[in-house]
Design a protein around this nucleic acid. Structure first.
Lengths: 116, 116
DNA sequence: CACTCATATGAGCAATTGCTCATACAATAA
DNA sequence: TTATTGTATGAGCAATTGCTCATATGAGTG
C-alpha cells in the first residue's frame, strides 16, 4: 500500500495495464473451478478414463480401485461443473466427457506432464 | 469388490482396457499438481498477469490487491512446480512464465471459460 | 557500519477438501 | 409387494490449503 516501488508513474502504468488485461472476476473464478476439478488425482483419472470411453460408475470404481461412494461424490462434482454428462440405462448410469474442451485441456496437460 | 456388475467378462475387459489406457501413476500425480497450481483464483491471476508481461512481486501484489506475503507464498508454489521463472535485478525480483506449455494451458482454459 | 526496502518464509488459523460410513433412492426381478 | 442391485448423498473426520502476522534475508544507500 505504502510501498515506494508502487508509486512511480512507470509502476502505476504497469499495474493499470495488468489489471485491464485480466479477465473479469467471474471468468477467473469459473476458470479456477474448472482447473480445480482437474487438480485431484482421482478426478483426473476419472476424466482420463472417460476420455477413452463412456463408463458406468461401478466399472469406474473397479478400474480405479476406489469405493463406489468416492467415485460417485467425484462425479457429482464433475457434473456440477458440467465437465461430464450421463445417461441412465436400466440401473446403470453411464458417464462421458461433456465436450471437446475438456478433452483438449487433458491433452494439453498430459503433453506438458510427459516432459522433464 | 463383490458387485455383480463387475464380474461379467465384458466388464472385466472394459476395466482392464481402462486401466491400461491410463498414464502412469506419477504422471497423473504431476499432472494433478500442475492443475492444482491453476486451481486457485489468486494463482491463476498471477499466471494470467505474467502471461502479459514479466512483473516484479510488488507490482503483482498491487495489481491483484493482495498482500506481498500472500503473493510471495504463491510464487513459491509456482516456482516449485516450475511454472514460473525469475531473475533478480537489484532489490527487485522479476517473475515470468516458465515456458509455452503454461501459456497454452491458460489459453485453452480461458477459451473454455468464455463459453456458456 | 547502520538503515531502508523488496522479497522470502515460518507459525498459526479458519476454511476447504477427499475420504469413509451409513443410508436413501431408483430400477428391475421374484 | 419385497428383495436385490447400482447409484446418490448427508454427516463426520483427518488432512490440506490460503491467508495473516511477524520476522528473516538480501541488496542497495548513506
Amino acid at each position: 500500500m505504502s510501498d515506494v516501488c508502487d508509486i512511480t508513474s512507470v509502476s502505476e502504468l504497469v499495474v493499470r495495464e495488468v489489471r485491464e488485461s485480466l479477465p473479469a472476476e467471474d471468468t477467473v473464478q469459473r476458470l479456477a473451478e474448472s482447473f480445480r476439478a482437474l487438480s485431484d488425482p482421482t478426478r483426473l483419472k476419472i476424466l482420463l478414463a472417460l476420455a477413452e470411453r463412456e463408463l458406468c460408475v461401478c466399472n469406474l470404481a473397479t478400474a480405479l480401485r476406489m469405493s463406489q461412494s468416492a467415485i460417485s461424490h467425484h462425479l457429482r462434482t464433475l457434473r456440477s461443473l458440467r465437465l461430464v454428462r450421463f445417461r441412465r440405462e436400466g440401473r446403470m448410469v453411464y458417464y462421458s466427457l461433456a465436450d471437446e474442451h475438456i478433452v483438449e485441456l487433458l491433452r494439453t496437460g498430459v503433453e506438458h506432464a510427459r516432459e522433464p
